[in-house]
Simulated assay, not measured.
Amino acid sequence: MNRTRRFAFAALALFCAVPAAAQDPGELQRKMQEAYDCMTEANGLLSSPETRAAGVETYEKACRLYGEVLAALPEAALPETTRREWTMIAHYNIACARSLQGRSDEAFAALERAIAAGWRDLDHMNKDPDLEPLRGLPRWKQVVGKLEAARNAKLIEAAKRSLARGKLFDYDLEVRTLDGETVRLADLRGKVVIVDYWGTWCAPCREEIPHLVALQKKYRDRLVIVGIAWEHGNAADEDVERVKAFAKEHGIDYPLALASDPAELRKVPGFQGFPTTLFIDRSGTVRAKEVGYRPYPVLEALVEALLAEETPPAPAKKTPPPAREDWF
């Protein structure tokens, strides 16, 4: 609901420049605001048994107004971005009204139309008290699944576009793992490599770790993941044991190293925060840098895109020049 109020005031500013003769957008804006005001009034009326019937009727009025807006939008003289935004909000708020009226089938139908129109705010949807009556119903998972799929598809597309055509930046890796092995990027040529900078204290890192574990399991023969833990620069025995315990608890079976020197973080230009995940192609070139949590489909899309590229030829071995023969 707060989204709608902010939108209404923004729209007011948007149309200050519209000529006086262009009445249609202004009328639609008025109806959007009136519908929102009805939603707000109905919320208050529903809170009392004595006024519940009036609240249901007020929601009905809001839905009617939103319906009129939706019917007029295709022909309205509006920027396309505004048309899409109003379409999403109208359908979403109809879903809220129908939810609170107890008309779940109509609420779900409106919610799906909002998603089809471009609604992607899953967090808002999951927290909106107006949709609470729907969240315990089986169809809720289906609708949320559609939204997650649509949102992930957009993220995947953006992730693939983010793959640099060439080298993103110079990068080299040589670390000693917690198991005492040495991992060198130069030795991993021919495989896609993920280098994950993370920490046990970092909530988004912890959320993303299971995705990396799943990727390593699925692409084991073609993908190498290296985790570089940063425990605020500490590398005492207790820090090592904490990382090892975390790895055991979460089933991490790829190499882990513990960094204590900030120089390790400075290998990534403009290092911003955790997690920072590098995607390196089979020639050893950094092609993408993702900062922050990413859902599994996005991470997998980047791996798949790199795996789909042709395997670079092995570097030619230098042939020593023939021995010089001196003729006398």
Score class of each variant (00 low, 15 high):
A13D: 11
F15C: 03
F15Y: 11
P19A: 02
E27H: 03
L28E: 10
R30L: 12
Q33I: 14
A35C: 00
L45S: 07
V69Y: 04
A71P: 09
P74V: 07
L78H: 02
T82H: 02
Y92D: 00
Y92M: 01
Y92V: 00
L100W: 04
W119R: 05
L122C: 01
H124W: 09
P129Q: 10
D130R: 05
L137Q: 12
Q142Y: 09
Q142M: 08
V143A: 08
V144S: 06
V144E: 13
A153W: 10
R165A: 12
G166A: 10
K167N: 15
D170H: 06
D170Q: 14
E174W: 11
R176Q: 11
L178F: 15
E181I: 00
T182Q: 06
R189K: 11
I194A: 03
W198D: 01
R206V: 15
I209W: 08
H211Y: 08
H211F: 00
V213P: 09
V213G: 12
K217I: 05
A229G: 13
A229S: 07
N234M: 14
A247P: 12
Y254F: 15
E264M: 13
L265S: 06
K267W: 07
G273I: 06
P275L: 12
T277R: 15
S283E: 04
K289H: 05
R294N: 11
R294H: 09
P297F: 08
V298A: 05
V298F: 05
L302Y: 07
E304D: 04
L306G: 07
A308V: 07
E310T: 12
P312W: 08
A314C: 05
T319V: 12
D326S: 13
